[in-house]
Design a protein around this nucleic acid. Structure first.
Lengths: 170, 170
DNA sequence: TGAAATTACTTTAAGCTTAAAATAATTGTC
DNA sequence: GACAATTATTTTAAGCTTAAAGTAATTTCA
């Protein structure tokens, strides 16, 4: 590569041109490839078998775990998407009769959404098949490997969150 | 978490339900969460620091590795996105003067795209910073852990590809 | 109390993404 | 050489996604 100019804050410990972080970069690309591959396949199957989009399925999955429903804001946090995104998704699911919206009891700004009976039935049917797909896709991994991956990904997640937080508060 | 008890709906065919694949499902969710978290942060930083979108950065990254350029089809395959998607991205990058399009010598259907000098310069500058971000985000992982993750993700990828292929040919 | 700040949500504009259909050029087959 | 099949790309329609700005309700606190 090229020699690179050392930035002004040379008093910090990174005064030398940092070693290249090729290993981390390749790990990130592999992680991304893996996820993209699987996500694409799941999206395709949901569309082909159930005529549903992945974002709608994800939203329903969150609501299925919350029998009493939750606010759009909570949904947005759990899905890790923007508020406006959830507004639109909920709108379309409500149009389909799969989702119910009601005003929050103590806060007139908020509304609580939950699955309708039909929505719950539809989701449960899809979820069962979906679980089989996932089992199939990860089928070559043994129980021990799954456990290892879980642990390493947990560590990765907390590493990423740490980087996010540190930047946020600096 | 819940302990695998099947809630509600006990009257449905829950009794003959095959072994649950909860471990695989949780692994998939964790993989997705991890990737989404990191991808979102990278997108945010690219936008804030360089005013570029992640898809455009990804496209440029592919072209940077191919000094002689490549066809849109090849780009689409490598990026794992649809052809139409690449058409639009390339269009916008060409408008910005970062990308050059020329007819393929032997095939009048195809066009070969490559980075302009400006595009290459812009990408290299972004890539250096990007690599530092990734190193920071994965900073809590040791070399051994990175190696382990690489291996397990390679296995996961091949497991997923196998599931895709088998379905495709059945 | 009441103004300021915060919170929950919606709207908007721009861009990303896909599947499917359409167009145009090339290749295979007889 | 015809002509069917394939390939490379573009177009279209629908939906997803975000950031930023806007609206309305709630909370904070002097």
């Amino acid at each position: 590569m090229d020699e690179g100019i050392i930035p002004l804050d040379a008093e910090t410990k990174v005064s030398e041109r940092p070693a290249d972080h090729e290993a981390e970069l390749r790990l990130w690309l592999r992680l991304l490839t893996c996820t993209t591959l699987i996500e694409g396949e799941v999206r395709r199957r949901l569309r082909d078998e159930f005529d549903v989009t992945l974002p709608r399925f994800d939203l329903m999955a969150q609501l299925d775990k919350a029998p009493n429903g939750m606010t759009l804001g909570e949904l947005s946090q759990r899905m890790m998407v923007s508020n406006g995104n959830v507004t639109g998704l909920a709108e379309r699911l409500a149009e389909q009769g799969l989702l119910d919206r009601r005003a929050a009891p103590n806060d007139r700004r908020a509304q609580i959404v939950s699955l309708t009976a039909e929505g719950r039935r539809a989701f449960r049917a899809m979820a069962r098949t979906h679980e089989d797909w996932i089992a199939e896709i990860f089928g070559s991994l043994g129980a021990g490997e799954i456990e290892q991956l879980m642990a390493l990904l947990a560590k990765t997640k907390s590493s990423a969150r740490k980087a996010l937080t540190e930047r946020q508060t600096s």
